[in-house]
Protein backbone atom coordinates (compact mmCIF):
# COMPACT_ATOMS: atom_id res chain seq x y z
CA UNK A 1 0.00 0.00 0.00
CA UNK A 2 2.76 2.37 1.01
CA UNK A 3 4.72 1.49 -2.10
CA UNK A 4 1.76 2.25 -4.37
CA UNK A 5 1.29 5.65 -2.73
CA UNK A 6 5.00 6.35 -3.13
CA UNK A 7 4.73 5.54 -6.86
CA UNK A 8 1.77 7.89 -7.17
CA UNK A 9 3.65 10.70 -5.43
CA UNK A 10 6.80 10.28 -7.54
CA UNK A 11 4.83 10.29 -10.81
CA UNK A 12 2.83 13.31 -9.68
CA UNK A 13 6.02 15.17 -8.82
CA UNK A 14 7.57 14.35 -12.22
CA UNK A 15 4.47 15.53 -14.06
CA UNK A 16 4.34 18.70 -11.98
CA UNK A 17 8.04 19.43 -12.73
CA UNK A 18 7.51 18.98 -16.47
CA UNK A 19 4.46 21.27 -16.27
CA UNK A 20 6.51 23.95 -14.50
CA UNK A 21 9.31 23.58 -17.08
CA UNK A 22 6.80 24.07 -19.91
CA UNK A 23 5.27 27.09 -18.17
CA UNK A 24 8.69 28.74 -17.65
CA UNK A 25 10.17 27.91 -21.07
CA UNK A 26 7.13 28.02 -23.37
CA UNK A 27 4.50 30.01 -21.44
CA UNK A 28 1.08 29.23 -20.02
CA UNK A 29 -0.46 28.86 -23.49
CA UNK A 30 1.67 25.75 -24.04
CA UNK A 31 0.56 24.33 -20.67
CA UNK A 32 -3.12 24.64 -21.61
CA UNK A 33 -2.38 23.20 -25.03
CA UNK A 34 -0.74 20.16 -23.41
CA UNK A 35 -3.57 19.68 -20.89
CA UNK A 36 -6.08 19.90 -23.72
CA UNK A 37 -4.21 17.18 -25.66
CA UNK A 38 -4.10 15.04 -22.49
CA UNK A 39 -7.85 15.34 -21.92
CA UNK A 40 -8.51 14.16 -25.49
CA UNK A 41 -6.10 11.26 -24.93
CA UNK A 42 -7.82 10.23 -21.68
CA UNK A 43 -11.23 10.24 -23.34
CA UNK A 44 -9.81 8.11 -26.16
CA UNK A 45 -8.01 5.52 -24.02
CA UNK A 46 -10.34 5.12 -21.03
CA UNK A 47 -12.75 2.72 -22.80
CA UNK A 48 -9.79 0.57 -23.92
CA UNK A 49 -8.23 0.52 -20.45
CA UNK A 50 -11.44 -0.75 -18.85
CA UNK A 51 -11.90 -3.27 -21.68
CA UNK A 52 -8.26 -4.40 -21.43
CA UNK A 53 -8.39 -4.95 -17.68
CA UNK A 54 -11.70 -6.83 -17.99
CA UNK A 55 -10.16 -9.01 -20.71
CA UNK A 56 -7.13 -9.72 -18.51
CA UNK A 57 -9.25 -10.59 -15.46
CA UNK A 58 -11.58 -12.87 -17.46
CA UNK A 59 -8.69 -14.69 -19.18
CA UNK A 60 -7.00 -15.24 -15.82
CA UNK A 61 -10.14 -17.04 -14.62
CA UNK A 62 -10.11 -19.24 -17.74
CA UNK A 63 -6.41 -20.07 -18.16
CA UNK A 64 -5.34 -22.45 -15.40
CA UNK A 65 -2.27 -21.27 -13.42
CA UNK A 66 0.89 -22.83 -14.81
CA UNK A 67 -0.69 -23.84 -18.13
CA UNK A 68 2.09 -22.18 -20.14
CA UNK A 69 4.96 -23.15 -17.83
CA UNK A 70 6.23 -25.79 -20.24
CA UNK A 71 6.22 -23.30 -23.14
CA UNK A 72 7.46 -20.10 -21.47
CA UNK A 73 8.64 -21.12 -18.00
CA UNK A 74 12.08 -20.70 -16.46
CA UNK A 75 13.14 -24.11 -17.84
CA UNK A 76 11.91 -23.43 -21.39
CA UNK A 77 15.35 -22.32 -22.65
CA UNK A 78 15.85 -20.44 -25.91
CA UNK A 79 12.75 -22.09 -27.36
CA UNK A 80 10.64 -20.43 -24.67
CA UNK A 81 12.11 -17.03 -25.53
CA UNK A 82 11.42 -17.62 -29.24
CA UNK A 83 7.81 -18.59 -28.48
CA UNK A 84 7.40 -15.44 -26.35
CA UNK A 85 8.99 -13.30 -29.09
CA UNK A 86 6.63 -14.69 -31.74
CA UNK A 87 3.64 -14.14 -29.45
CA UNK A 88 4.75 -10.55 -28.78
CA UNK A 89 5.12 -9.76 -32.49
CA UNK A 90 1.63 -11.15 -33.14
CA UNK A 91 0.14 -9.21 -30.20
CA UNK A 92 -2.11 -6.47 -31.64
CA UNK A 93 -3.09 -3.23 -29.96
CA UNK A 94 -1.44 -0.64 -27.74
CA UNK A 95 -0.16 -0.77 -24.16
CA UNK A 96 -3.69 -0.93 -22.75
CA UNK A 97 -4.07 -4.39 -24.28
CA UNK A 98 -0.48 -5.67 -24.14
CA UNK A 99 0.40 -5.13 -20.45
CA UNK A 100 -2.79 -6.79 -19.12
CA UNK A 101 -1.95 -9.78 -21.36
CA UNK A 102 1.49 -9.92 -19.69
CA UNK A 103 -0.38 -10.51 -16.41
CA UNK A 104 -2.22 -13.44 -17.99
CA UNK A 105 1.04 -14.96 -19.28
CA UNK A 106 2.70 -14.46 -15.88
CA UNK A 107 -0.08 -16.25 -14.06
CA UNK A 108 0.03 -19.06 -16.62
CA UNK A 109 3.67 -19.72 -15.74
CA UNK A 110 5.82 -17.61 -18.09
CA UNK A 111 9.07 -16.58 -16.36
CA UNK A 112 10.61 -13.08 -16.29
CA UNK A 113 12.79 -13.77 -19.34
CA UNK A 114 9.85 -14.83 -21.49
CA UNK A 115 7.70 -11.91 -20.25
CA UNK A 116 10.41 -9.39 -21.09
CA UNK A 117 10.97 -10.97 -24.52
CA UNK A 118 7.21 -10.69 -25.06
CA UNK A 119 7.08 -7.00 -24.05
CA UNK A 120 10.08 -6.09 -26.22
CA UNK A 121 8.89 -8.05 -29.26
CA UNK A 122 5.52 -6.31 -29.01
CA UNK A 123 6.88 -2.78 -28.56
CA UNK A 124 9.80 -3.10 -30.99
CA UNK A 125 8.63 -5.44 -33.74
CA UNK A 126 4.85 -5.66 -33.30
CA UNK A 127 3.49 -6.70 -36.66
CA UNK A 128 0.47 -4.40 -36.46
CA UNK A 129 2.57 -1.34 -35.60
CA UNK A 130 4.98 -1.97 -38.48
CA UNK A 131 2.19 -2.45 -41.02
CA UNK A 132 -0.06 0.38 -39.83
CA UNK A 133 2.54 3.02 -38.93
CA UNK A 134 6.18 2.36 -39.81
CA UNK A 135 5.79 1.01 -43.35
CA UNK A 136 3.50 3.74 -44.70
CA UNK A 137 5.27 6.62 -42.93
CA UNK A 138 8.96 5.69 -43.23
CA UNK A 139 8.99 3.48 -46.33
CA UNK A 140 9.83 -0.19 -46.97
CA UNK A 141 13.64 0.19 -47.06
CA UNK A 142 13.86 1.92 -43.70
CA UNK A 143 11.26 -0.34 -42.08
CA UNK A 144 13.11 -3.46 -43.25
CA UNK A 145 16.50 -2.19 -42.04
CA UNK A 146 14.98 -1.27 -38.68
CA UNK A 147 13.22 -4.65 -38.37
CA UNK A 148 16.40 -6.64 -39.17
CA UNK A 149 18.29 -4.67 -36.49
CA UNK A 150 15.46 -5.18 -33.98
CA UNK A 151 14.68 -8.85 -34.61
CA UNK A 152 17.24 -10.47 -32.26
CA UNK A 153 16.86 -7.95 -29.42
CA UNK A 154 13.87 -9.50 -27.53
CA UNK A 155 15.66 -12.86 -27.21
CA UNK A 156 18.83 -11.08 -26.01
CA UNK A 157 16.84 -9.14 -23.41
CA UNK A 158 15.15 -12.36 -22.26
CA UNK A 159 18.52 -14.06 -21.83
CA UNK A 160 19.87 -11.06 -19.87
CA UNK A 161 16.74 -11.00 -17.69
CA UNK A 162 17.12 -14.70 -16.81
CA UNK A 163 20.78 -14.16 -16.03
CA UNK A 164 20.11 -11.20 -13.69
CA UNK A 165 19.77 -12.39 -10.10
CA UNK A 166 16.61 -10.36 -9.44
CA UNK A 167 13.54 -12.38 -8.59
CA UNK A 168 10.17 -11.23 -9.91
CA UNK A 169 6.91 -12.74 -8.80
CA UNK A 170 3.55 -12.22 -10.54
CA UNK A 171 2.22 -11.29 -7.08
CA UNK A 172 4.47 -8.18 -7.20
CA UNK A 173 2.29 -6.72 -10.00
CA UNK A 174 -0.28 -4.16 -8.84
CA UNK A 175 -2.72 -5.32 -11.54
CA UNK A 176 -2.69 -8.88 -10.19
CA UNK A 177 -5.03 -10.16 -7.48
CA UNK A 178 -3.45 -12.41 -4.87
CA UNK A 179 -6.52 -13.80 -3.21
CA UNK A 180 -6.61 -17.00 -5.23
Amino acid sequence: MLRRNATFLVISALTLCSAIAVALLRGMGAVWHALDATWDLILTVLPSIIGGLLLSAALRQLVPPGALARWMGAESGIRGLLVATAAGMAMPGGPVAAFPVVLVLAQAGADRGALIAFVLAWSLNGFQRIVVWELPILGADFALLRLICGLPLPVLAGLFARWLPIRWDPADAPGMQDRR
Binding site: T15, L41, V45
Partner: peptide, 24 residues
Protein backbone atom coordinates in the same frame (compact mmCIF):
# COMPACT_ATOMS: atom_id res chain seq x y z
CA UNK B 1 -11.11 -6.09 -13.16
CA UNK B 2 -12.67 -3.47 -10.89
CA UNK B 3 -9.95 -3.85 -8.24
CA UNK B 4 -7.23 -3.67 -10.88
CA UNK B 5 -8.77 -0.53 -12.39
CA UNK B 6 -8.94 1.09 -8.97
CA UNK B 7 -5.23 0.36 -8.38
CA UNK B 8 -4.05 1.27 -11.87
CA UNK B 9 -6.04 4.39 -12.73
CA UNK B 10 -4.63 7.03 -10.29
CA UNK B 11 -1.01 6.54 -11.41
CA UNK B 12 -2.05 6.41 -15.05
CA UNK B 13 -4.03 9.65 -14.86
CA UNK B 14 -1.11 11.49 -13.27
CA UNK B 15 1.39 10.11 -15.83
CA UNK B 16 -0.56 10.81 -19.02
CA UNK B 17 -0.09 14.64 -19.03
CA UNK B 18 3.69 14.10 -18.90
CA UNK B 19 3.85 13.06 -22.59
CA UNK B 20 2.05 16.21 -23.66
CA UNK B 21 4.36 18.40 -21.54
CA UNK B 22 7.50 16.69 -22.89
CA UNK B 23 6.26 17.15 -26.46
CA UNK B 24 6.04 20.91 -25.79
Amino acid sequence: AGTALWRVLPVMLMALPMAAFLAE
